[in-house]
């Protein structure tokens, strides 16, 4: 009877902790029309991170994650660094076009237009955002002595991921849509001799949601 009660309490606590480790993700979408974005079988998409802000930059790990979500048999994605290197110096952090008027001027450069056409890149997706750790609470301390060691205490922290995606058409030189993903969650670290991390995958949740939503933008003919 006592063993049953113990296992019940154990499972109950596990469920409470694990349910506390889920991220809440919200996606806002804007498209000028209800039509999906058409992509020829030969055409490709490139996903680039914005890196012109002073205090943060969209990390390439997140760009890779979203690229992998979108890169399927139908939608082909060009690797970020491959594209940036192929078109150097036009898409460096300080020289990349920030708006459509600048993109239109850039595409008037013959060498740039030719390189984009040569690589069959039809759409450019800009990702701008970061993941930040916000509120931190609790404390955990670890000690090692001749008789052994261990960690004791409890710590928690909140993480917020906010990313904006903007889709540009490199042929029509127009904006095809925007997406915004906000994901937040709390992670815990319990020190009960061994440290037990209960991490909320905030960033990977934001990546998954954004990637899946972006994939729905495109229809391959």
């Amino acid at each position: 009877m006592k063993a049953k009660l113990n296992s019940f309490i154990g499972s109950f606590l596990c469920i409470i902790f694990l349910s506390g480790c889920t991220a809440v993700t919200t996606i806002d979408e804007y498209r000028p029309t209800n039509e999906s974005i058409r992509l020829d079988k030969t055409e490709k998409v490139v996903i680039l991170g914005r890196r012109d802000a002073g205090h943060y930059e969209t990390d390439s790990e997140f760009i890779d994650c979203v690229s992998k979500k979108i890169n399927t048999a139908n939608v082909r994605v060009v690797a970020e660094q491959t594209f940036i290197d192929s078109i150097y110096p036009w898409f460096e952090p300080r020289t990349a076009p920030k708006g459509l008027p600048r993109l239109k001027r850039l595409m008037q450069e013959k060498v740039v237009r030719e390189r984009v056409t040569q690589q069959n890149i039809r759409y450019l997706v800009w990702l701008d955002g970061s993941t930040e750790t916000m509120g931190q609470g609790g404390s955990i301390s670890c000690a090692v002595g001749p008789a052994g060691g261990g960690c004791f205490g409890f710590a928690q922290w909140d993480k917020i991921s906010t990313y904006d995606a903007t889709v540009w058409d490199l042929v029509e030189l127009t904006e095809k849509g925007r997406l915004r993903v906000d994901s937040e969650g709390t992670s815990y670290l319990i020190g009960a001799v061994a440290p037990i991390p209960l991490l909320t995958p905030v960033k990977s949740d934001a990546c998954g949601s954004l990637g899946n939503q972006l994939k729905k933008f495109f229809t391959v003919d």
């Binding site: 150097y88 110096p89 460096e92 952090p93 300080r94 020289t95």
Partner: peptide, 13 residues
């Protein structure tokens, strides 16, 4: 490395 690339881009443009 990023600063060098930036200097090269600045020179070219």
């Amino acid at each position: 490395n990023v600063a060098l690339r930036d200097a090269g881009a600045k020179l070219l443009l």
